[in-house]
């Protein structure tokens, strides 16, 4: 740790190159792009490339979903601090319990990513799985222009969004596994993720997707401990 500071002085300028106008990332204001929006066409184009890239040399669908998840994860970590920074000082609070965290994801994260809040938030109705929560999106933006081939029917490209959600959870010290499941077209019972309450509105929303958030045991332990205190 002590040589962390001393080594800087000697070689700090050596390998660094500045842009010609002398502006670095530190000169850019954080709030300028707060309300600006991105063209959906360009996003769809980029996202299809990302899916194409991730689907090279994969062994299984899980493998592909894992890769998409990994691409989304750092975005969640970064987004968490950016959104907290943009909050007014009074409500600049770190989430302390699962409900506050999921509410932050449903409202702030979804609004900043997709321009609207998520459509639902549910707790698993199965009493043996108190650590599972579901975030429901009726029409995920990422799946808008993705048609899944028949032989890959279990694939949901919303795994990318699941990765972002996982990043937000991990960043705020609620380690979790997040997976995306399409429930729109599937028959009842075909969903193994315990999506008990997610069966309404299947006809109306063929692209309905459930993000299953499964928190790590230590989170549940802490939650019980904090709840008592």
């Amino acid at each position: 740790m002590s040589n962390l500071q001393t080594s800087k002085g000697s070689k700090e300028q050596a390998g660094l190159r500045y842009p010609s106008n002398g502006k670095t990332i530190y000169h850019r204001p954080l709030n300028r792009t707060r309300t600006s929006e991105l063209s959906q066409a360009s996003f769809a184009y980029l996202f299809s490339e990302m899916v194409g890239y991730a689907s090279k040399r994969i062994e299984s669908i899980q493998d592909l979903e894992k890769r998409l998840n990994t691409q989304g994860h750092p975005i969640g970590l970064k987004l968490l601090d950016l959104l907290l920074h943009r909050e007014p000082t009074r409500s600049q609070l770190r989430p302390l319990n699962i409900i506050a965290l999921l509410h932050l994801i449903k409202q702030q994260v979804w609004t900043s990513l997709f321009g609207r809040a998520a459509d639902g938030l549910e707790k698993s109705s199965d009493p043996s799985k108190p650590d599972e929560y579901m975030i429901i999106d009726n029409e995920p933006l990422v799946n808008a222009y993705i048609s899944v081939p028949k032989d890959m029917s279990q694939l949901s490209c919303a795994a990318y969004v699941a990765g972002i959600v996982e990043g937000v959870c991990d960043g705020s010290a609620f380690p979790a596994r997040v997976t995306a499941h399409s429930v729109g077209k599937q028959q009842q019972g075909g969903e193994d993720g315990g999506a008990g309450g997610a069966d309404g509105g299947k006809e109306m929303w063929p692209g309905r997707t459930v993000f299953l958030v499964k928190f790590a045991p230590e989170v549940m332990e802490r939650e019980g401990f904090l709840g008592k205190g």
Binding site: K8, E12, T24, I25, Y26, L30, L77, K78, D81, H85
Partner: peptide
Amino acid sequence: VYENWVKTIMSPFYRVNMEVSSPTFR
């Protein structure tokens, strides 16, 4: 410092728990 920290982590090349060596940040 937090404002500058958020700018640091906004860099697409920054991963969590990486040492910050930018002279501008200092």
